[in-house]
């Protein structure tokens, strides 16, 4: 038993080291395109900055959105964006490249390596393209907490990190499900759309949407647990909308969802091996 634990720890450390080596090489490769990388980051930052600005303009004109003021809604947005950025750093490239790899046969090159599929893909897919998302959302969070007159104490910081951690895990699971479905169907567009549609939904308080969307965003794809439920508790908002008091369930939802996503991914990969391309 202890041997088995030791062995899996050794494996995990090895994959971490592999991530480190792969990331080093990826950064070295990226330096050839330094200029376009910087431009890309600035462009993305601008896109999201404008989205934040428009959000502020719109809600300020109306005072509040279903009891949430502009800064509170911007917090929802920034938490969602931050979690998306963290998850994207690890998982986006898998989702982006896997369909093409499967289609063109490049996935076979992964299978002839003496590695476990998912950890290897994770190790080789780390990207730094989300610096803009993450930096911008931290800035906006700072701005909003300041405007809301909530001093960022250590206790608050710990709660924020907890929310972001589980939020990232949920986004990671979503990325994995879209990626894994590439093993089963040739077109993953519809799932892709669902993921990004609900990402858009998660920028606003869930309570403004009809019940059916609220239920879907809680049960089907647990977007509500990324930011809405935990922030409602953090900001001490009234319990309206959603499926009731669910903030405490965020960690459970995140861990269960992520585990299920991993299982789904591995089963799908296995299916690929028996059916081929």
């Amino acid at each position: 038993m202890r041997e088995a634990v030791k062995e899996s720890v050794r494996e995990a450390v090895w994959y971490l080291r592999l991530t480190y080596v792969f990331t080093g090489k990826a950064i070295k490769a990226m330096l050839t395109y330094r200029c376009s990388f910087v431009i890309n980051c600035i462009s993305q930052a601008m896109d999201y900055a404008v989205a934040f600005l428009l959000m502020w303009v719109m809600i300020s004109a109306f005072d509040s959105l279903n009891g949430w003021n502009a800064y509170e809604v911007m917090l929802l947005y920034s938490f969602s964006l931050f979690a998306y950025g963290i998850a994207g750093t690890f998982f986006f490239n898998i989702m982006n490249h896997l369909p093409g790899q499967i289609w063109k046969g490049g996935f076979d090159d992964v299978l002839v390596k003496p590695v476990k599929v998912l950890p290897y893909l994770l190790a080789s897919s780390f990207i730094c393209n989300y610096i803009a998302h993450i930096t911008l959302s931290i800035l906006v969070m700072g701005l909003c907490f300041h405007a809301l007159e909530m001093p960022v104490t250590l206790w608050l910081l710990a709660r924020i990190i907890r929310i972001l951690l589980f939020g990232s895990l949920i986004y990671g699971g979503l990325f994995l499900i879209v990626s894994g479905s590439a093993f089963l169907v040739t077109k993953t567009d519809a799932l892709f759309h669902i993921m990004f549609f609900f990402r858009e939904v998660s920028y606003y308080p869930l309570s403004i949407f009809p019940k059916v969307i609220q239920i879907m965003a809680t049960v089907l794809v647990p977007y509500g647990f990324i930011n809405f439920y935990p922030l409602r508790e953090l900001l001490g908002k009234e319990e309206t909308g959603g499926l009731g008091y669910l903030a405490g369930w965020s960690p459970v939802a995140a861990i269960v969802f992520f585990t299920m996503a991993c299982l789904f991914f591995n089963l799908s990969a296995r299916q690929y091996k028996s059916s081929g391309s």
Partner: peptide, 24 residues
Amino acid sequence: FGQRSRLNWDLPMLDSFELHKEIY
């Protein structure tokens, strides 16, 4: 597999060799 490459396009081949060394 002759039709596709496992070498990193933007790096010298020795870098891909080093990755291979880690993987194996």
